[in-house]
Design a protein around this nucleic acid. Structure first.
Lengths: 340, 340
DNA sequence: CTGTTAGCGCGTTCAA
DNA sequence: TTGAACGCGCTAACAG
């Protein structure tokens, strides 16, 4: 047997099984119209030769690559890593491979990554949020590549969305804090540039406050990257204001954890002097002292459901194009009624 | 222009640029022997048509896929997610795509994933740890696929390793605790089944204690999955022992965080009554109260260096086959000298 | 149920 | 410096 180089190919299997390559192909692809005995010989021959199909040849011939791409901001944030974990797990159940790329929140880089994915022949692309270069989407559409947004439920002309309403989430946080009697607010938002999720949360928060008669100009909003340090720094800026907020909404648990850290260091009681609400419900929400009140984001579910969409047949997809998941407020210890 | 289906192909570019497909191919692949003017026409034509090369065809023809695979236990643990982030970032600088698969710490599943990766034509595979099915490695070798171990620096016949010495790390933890005067030890290890890293840390810890006259039978070791809850539960088991440990080494910061949580709940002072050492130096190490003393693992660096190895030419690789990275003890607040 | 034929889109000879 | 021809490994169409 020619076991050199890459190993046996389909025709070698055919020879050993004493049949035509076409028949081997049928067996490999689960075509039912094959005689038991022949199928058996083929399977045995393939195993004996350690045959592994050549995906490139297969893809070239059939235009089905069974490849999916995902472009996320970073894997260094649990919220994205967990989503990808769910996505990958589901896809691999169906022998679909996932190519992952990180854009570092840069939509120009995202375009480059998308180009590479197109070149690889991915059949679908998972994107985060709804802010993308028009050329990115145009390219995907031109190549007939399905794409699905995550972390957003925003409607759009084409493509699908699996996520939640960030604006509504922001309003939920505001409502909760308002009901606790607070009237002095601050917000530590994620960087909103090219980031519809961060912006949505902020806008929802501000809008709900405004509806309750709190002018948004009175609410100090600072932005930070999703790092502990930025949370600390941002909290400091908030608390050094003339009129200190008694309630702070953070665009991420990481920022909130930093905010709590700062408060400790500065001798500001949480929730005694200031209530803090996070976002994401990461594992760290249970590790801060006090434990963090936060909004739970269904990261893993988003990945799974995005995978389901991708794996669905075109006809099934119509039903699944827009999927809004619920986000839940998880009340822990970092929030309390305002002190009178 | 035929802009239907998948879009333009190489031959369309050739026609528009008024040259042969071979010339287009040369331009695309940076072959210097092409007339300026022609090259220019080709580049322009390609752009105009929105041409994207077909990776499958390319791979089939050239046997270079520019695809790399990684099989990790899970993305749900920052230590792996961060490694992958570093790996991916470096690879994509060179237009190499990364297919990622999770095995859930199951080496049989790992084999299946590896098979799929082989089928996809990956040129290299990044593995975690050195415990793998022999058939997995045999398959990789038979297909001439480079593989590199991470999180371990263990020598092996073939393949490369980028990581650190888990046994030594365990010894470092023991040494530190011993120097603090402790003599009653406990350990919360990760699940050691099929996990050489978890086992290595445990063995190193126990060995170093033994060298200092502490019989390993006197050291209670319990195992838990890398989850907060397991850390809690394991710590409870340890603290309900007849002879309570005054020092506990945990195989992961997650376990340590759980241990600290339990201690709080049970009214056991950390580090007053018990010192706790973690492993990994995740972001959460700064979030526990007290902050966690831990061993820093260079996750991102491992990913980057693994990428460097993969991207290196075969001749350069020889120098890079074995790379042991340093791990550092980070002393914070969860450890103290034993009370007399 | 099975075999034969003909490419999928590209890169690589070899000649010119 | 350029082009013509071939084939990478496989599957789809068509016969039989």
């Amino acid at each position: 047997m020619d076991l050199e180089d890459g190993g046996a190919k389909l025709i070698d299997v055919a020879r050993l099984a004493n049949c035509s390559p076409a028949t081997v192909s049928r067996v490999l692809n689960g075509n039912p119209n094959v005689n038991e005995a022949v199928r058996d010989r083929v399977v045995r021959a393939a195993r004996e030769l350690g045959y592994v199909p050549n995906g490139s040849a297969r893809a070239l011939r059939s235009t089905r690559t069974r490849l999916v791409g995902a472009i996320i901001p970073t894997l260094d944030h649990a919220i994205y890593a967990t989503m990808v974990d769910g996505l990958q797990a589901r896809l691999s159940e169906k022998d679909v491979s996932l190519i992952i790329n990180t854009s570092g929140y840069d939509i120009d880089l995202e375009y480059e990554q998308a180009r590479l994915l197109v070149e690889r022949g991915v059949e679908s692309v998972v994107l985060v949020g709804s802010t993308h270069l028009p050329t990115t989407l145009a390219m995907l559409e031109q190549k007939r590549i399905e794409y699905v947004y995550t972390y957003t439920s925003k409607a759009m002309e084409s493509g699908a969305a699996v996520g939640f309403d960030n604006e509504k989430a922001g309003r939920t946080a505001a409502r909760y804090l308002l009901d606790l009697g607070h009237s002095q607010f601050g917000m530590i938002a994620g960087i909103t540039r090219d980031n519809d999720r961060a912006a949505g949360r902020r806008d929802g928060f501000l809008n709900e406050l405004e509806r309750s008669g709190i002018d948004h100009t009175r609410v100090r909003v600072v932005e930070g990257a999703y790092r502990l340090d930025d949370g600390r720094r941002c909290m400091q800026r908030l608390m050094e204001e003339e009129r200190r907020p008694t309630a702070v909404f953070c665009g991420s648990d990481i920022l909130a954890a930093g905010a709590i850290k700062y408060s400790h260091a500065a001798g500001i009681a949480v929730p005694g002097e200031v209530s803090i609400v996070g976002f994401d419900n990461l594992e760290i929400a249970e590790l801060t002292s006090p434990e963090l009140t936060t909004l739970e984001v269904p990261a893993r579910d988003m990945g799974r459901i995005a995978a389901d969409y991708i794996l669905a047949s075109p006809s099934q997809r119509l039903h699944l194009r827009q999927r809004e998941l619920a986000i839940r407020l998880i009340v822990r210890e970092s929030t309390a009624p305002v002190r009178r």
